[in-house]
Amino acid sequence: MNFENILVEKTNEIATITINRPKKLNALNKATIEELHEAFKDLNNDVNTKVILLTGSGDKAFVAGADISEFAHFSEAEGGKLAAKGQELLFDFVENLSTPVIALVNGFALGGGLELAMSCHFRIASDNARVGLPETSLGVIPGYGGTQRLPQLIGKGKAMELIMTAGMMSAEEAKAYGLVNYVVTQEELKPLAEKIAGKIIKNSSVAIGKAIEAVNSGFKDGENGYKSEINAFGACFGTEDFKEGTTAFLEKRKPNFPNK
């Protein structure tokens, strides 16, 4: 599928999605959100894609925010629909993919950009990255899951401070609070992501999908994470990957997972 705002590459079971709007610092507009949805959906359905890397073009920004010009004159109802549709199409969608998604934060990740990075399963950053949720400086609040995911990741107090002050964190500060897993140079960002992805690929993609489901359930209202874990654990016993993994262990060889 041809896209106007993103690039998609595949190499050795690793797919890379690059948000490609450098003149707008990769800001998210409606068209880009829709294209990202289609790309993630297609890659998640591709049995030959085991890990998805998400980054922004250039060396200045992952995503510098949402495209404010698209919604500056929205009504209350339109604003609510904007948030609901965005969460459904992209942010919640990415969080609940069974294929692991790693955000490569290669510069500014602000507003919707940080919200997109937080919807990924984990994040690594370049040392020039700056992250924050500046929405209150525009008279609005984060609407793509930021008020929920940021406290989950860094704690309520610090999240409240960042949201209220519309401030930014450096990459190292983000790492100290657990918002990103690693901080490296721009040049090392993609190689590190590929190294981590290579470790993920060696394991059962079916089990990884179940693990994502179980972890996420612990953060959802009305769901019992422990019960979800029990159900997901039991479901693994009915998979070909479980049979191969346990057989390989007992035969003292490396498993060759069919990913079924």
Rank of each mutant, 00 (worst) to 15 (best):
T16S: 12
M169L: 15
I230F: 08
E35K: 09
M118G: 02
A39Y: 12
A117N: 08
F71W: 15
L28P: 06
V51G: 01
G222R: 07
V94Q: 04
G238H: 11
L192P: 03
T99F: 09
R123L: 12
V131D: 00
K158L: 08
T18N: 01
L114K: 06
A83I: 12
E4R: 13
E35I: 01
G79Y: 11
V183Q: 06
L114Q: 08
N48P: 02
G178Y: 09
I201L: 01
M118E: 08
L114R: 06
E188L: 11
S228N: 11
A174N: 05
E13W: 00
V206I: 15
I201C: 01
P191F: 01
V215M: 10
F3C: 06
S170F: 03
D92W: 11
T185Y: 01
G234M: 10
N96M: 04
A61R: 07
F91I: 02
V47D: 13
T18G: 00
L54Y: 04
G218A: 13
G143V: 07
D59Q: 10
L189H: 01
V51F: 03
G132K: 14
A232K: 15
S228E: 14
R21W: 04
D92V: 04
A207Y: 11
E78N: 03
N259T: 01
V51D: 01
I196Q: 01
K252H: 13
S205T: 12
K175L: 02
A27L: 06
I196P: 06
D46N: 15
K85E: 15
K243N: 04
T247P: 00
N259Y: 05
E4Y: 02
I163M: 09
T239Y: 04
I17W: 06
L43T: 05
V51Y: 04
S217R: 15
F91T: 14
N259E: 03
S119R: 03
M168W: 00
I196K: 04
A27N: 08
A197R: 04
G238A: 08
K195P: 00
H73Q: 10
Q152I: 07
L7S: 10
H73V: 10
G155Y: 09
L104N: 07
N5C: 09
I6P: 12
G86L: 05
E135S: 09
L250D: 03
L189P: 07
G143A: 10
N45K: 15
M164F: 10
E78A: 12
T49S: 08
E213L: 13
V140N: 09
G245R: 14
A193G: 12
N224Q: 03
L54P: 06
D241I: 07
A103I: 09
N224I: 10
G58W: 13
E4G: 08
S137N: 12
K210Q: 14
E161C: 04
F237H: 11
A39H: 13
G111T: 11
L250R: 13
N45W: 05
N20D: 14
K50P: 05
